[in-house]
């Protein structure tokens, strides 16, 4: 196994460990992440509190564990949204060509030229969470939405969708480029000659062969989504306290940076390790495809 493969396996193992930690958070966490205990505020790491406590006396380690859930879920789902939208639009643009391609790509270009932060601010300012909650009052979608929102805070759903909708453009371009070059390949011509319908051409011939770069991009995208969530929470726009996420732990730790380094270093290291793990896996996949 060469170096890239070994690193990719290390990355996979890390992600596996993180997933297990996230799933087992309720059992692994020594303390309630929301339990406030002012007398125990800003304690440095010790045997009782492995990563110390924050300004409200909450155990940092437990908060980080729960934060893993949030970060991973947001990472995967945001990336899922990005890939879903990106592949659809990119494939349609690449396959159809002509004016449709032109229109779609100009839309992509426009969205890409708007600074991400402003897009996010604009989206979040509209308070989409409220509108999502109002979905529960609709006839058929309502109960489904209500069940989903029981599990996940609608505001987190907003964050996921927002991040996803900001990242699909890159995927779209990638997919379009792959489809454009695949369209001219002889096996596609052969399939057309056999009488394959456009749907069949797309689903059985074009997309399966275009997914390579998309897979790489998606893996790297999870890392990117997690980072973006951290930035958002850092700015106070993402996951709202008291729900812990790595980003808002970082944010809260900012003011106590001089006296309580563990409040920023711990979430920082978590983010670093996770994004690195996803990047290693992405590199491994890319390497596989090139071989």
């Amino acid at each position: 196994m060469n170096r890239t493969d070994r690193l990719a396996w290390i990355g996979m193992s890390l992600i596996l460990v993180l997933t297990v930690l996230a799933l087992a958070a309720p059992w692994l966490a020594p303390y309630d992440p929301l339990a406030v205990s002012l007398p125990e505020a800003l304690l440095p790491p010790s045997a009782a509190h492995w990563l110390g406590t924050d300004q409200l006396g909450r155990d940092v380690f437990s908060r980080l564990l729960y934060g893993t859930r949030i970060s991973l879920v947001i990472g995967f789902i945001a990336m899922g949204v990005a890939v879903g939208v990106g592949v659809t639009i990119g494939a349609v643009a690449g396959f159809a060509g002509g004016w449709l391609d032109g229109v779609l790509m100009r839309a992509v270009d426009t969205l890409l030229s708007i600074p991400t932060i402003f897009l996010l601010l604009a989206v979040i300012a509209v308070d989409p969470a409220e509108r999502l909650v109002s979905l529960t009052r609709w006839p058929i979608v309502g109960p489904v939405a209500a069940a989903v929102f029981h599990w996940i805070d609608p505001r987190i759903v907003v964050v996921m969708a927002a991040i996803g909708l900001m990242s699909w453009m890159g995927v779209a371009r990638l997919v379009r480029a792959e489809i454009l070059s695949l369209k001219e390949r002889e096996f596609v011509l052969a399939a057309r000659g056999l009488g394959a319908s456009r749907w069949r051409l797309m689903t059985r011939h074009l997309l399966p062969n275009a997914m390579g770069p998309v897979l790489v991009s998606a893996t790297l995208g999870v890392g990117g989504a997690i980072l973006t969530e951290s930035v958002l929470s850092y700015l106070g726009l993402g996951v709202q306290p008291p729900t812990p996420s790595w980003g808002n732990i970082l944010n809260e730790g900012r003011v106590a940076l001089g006296v309580a380094w563990w409040l920023t270093v711990s979430p920082g290291v978590c983010i670093l390790v996770t994004v690195l793990a996803f990047n290693l896996v992405g590199e491994g996949i890319r390497d596989r495809f090139l071989r």
């Binding site: 002889e186 052969a190 394959a196």
Partner: peptide, 25 residues
């Protein structure tokens, strides 16, 4: 086609490729 390396879908197994026209029609 001329170049069989290019005229077969690299992700399709032999039996799928040969069956395809039968499925399409």
């Amino acid at each position: 086609f001329q170049d069989p390396a290019n005229s077969l879908n690299p992700r399709m197994r032999v039996e799928t490729a040969v069956a395809e026209p039968l499925i399409i029609h």
